[in-house]
């Protein structure tokens, strides 16, 4: 048992990601290394261009690392799979031709995790946990942005995946809804203790949501510092000094006008 607890759930080892665009080959991340244990809320924090989203997609299996490897439960990640469910920033991650309930059940049915009846039952359950039971039969285009993201989270919770991958899910929301969604996400976590890898460029959000924070620098993305749970817990709620430290790490090489 102890051995199981000790081996990390997700391990990213020396991962270099390259992709091709019109100007040639771009190195998104360079020899990135970090680990996620069960029940962790790990935040990948960095400015735009640090490859954090690309890294998340690599964990999701949507692109293969050029160097290094990514393992989940000791098995190499070889492609997308329902054991790592992504929640995207874009509202159109919901299928517009399906109702809220069908969208949530879709994951379970597409991955053949549950038969139809049970899938719909579990979908309703998940919809209840994000307080959208009144909208179970509504189509996504009738929902607000925050509600759409909640449906996406419900779809992902219903799957009970090994790890939840969140790609700035609240970035497109207004400040008020964002704040509420962050609180709700934490509430959901304290209830279900899921493992989550969360990408953001907001220091505030990282401090609020993370139990560990992986701070990344841009061009190419490198891990600058990993702030551990103990440090975050010790600061208990208000983290002005940690925020300041992250800011210094992030803007170490930046010219003054950026800040």
């Amino acid at each position: 048992m102890a051995a199981v607890a000790d081996t990390p759930l997700l391990s990213v080892k020396g991962v270099t990601l390259r992709y091709r665009d019109q100007n040639g080959i771009v190195t998104a991340t360079d020899k990135v290394e970090f680990q996620v244990s069960r029940g962790d809320r790990v935040v990948l924090l960095g400015p735009s261009g640090c490859g954090k989203s690309t890294l998340l997609k690599a964990v999701g299996g949507f692109l293969a690392p050029s160097e290094g490897n990514i393992t989940l439960n000791g098995r190499q990640v070889a492609g997308p799979g329902p054991d790592r469910v992504m929640v995207f920033q874009e509202f159109d991650q919901l299928l517009p031709w399906k109702t809220v309930r069908e969208n949530v059940a879709f994951g379970l049915l597409a991955s053949r995790s549950l038969p139809k009846g049970e899938a719909h039952e579990r979908a309703l359950e998940a919809i209840r946990t994000v307080h959208l039971e009144q909208f179970a039969d509504a189509y996504p285009h009738t929902l607000s942005g925050g509600m759409k993201q909640r449906v996406a989270i419900a779809r992902c919770l219903a799957m009970k995946p090994e790890i939840i991958l969140m790609d700035e899910p609240f970035a497109a929301l207004d400040a008020l809804s964002r704040r509420r969604m962050q609180d709700e996400l934490l509430e959901l976590w304290s209830e279900y203790q899921f493992t989550m890898l969360f990408v953001t460029h907001s220091i505030e959000e990282a401090l609020l949501l993370g139990s560990r924070i992986v701070v990344m620098s841009p061009h190419p993305g490198r891990v600058e510092e990993i702030i551990e749970a103990e440090q975050l817990q010790a600061a208990a709620g208000a983290h002005p000094e940690i925020a300041e430290r992250i800011r210094q790490v992030l803007f170490r090489d930046a010219p003054d006008y950026v800040i």
């Binding site: 997308p80 329902p82 991650q93 994951g107 991955s111 053949r112």
Partner: peptide
């Protein structure tokens, strides 16, 4: 068909 929906489909193993 937008990239997000494609990724969602593949994410669930389709």
């Amino acid at each position: 068909v937008n990239g997000t929906i494609r990724m969602v489909g593949r994410n669930y193993g389709l």
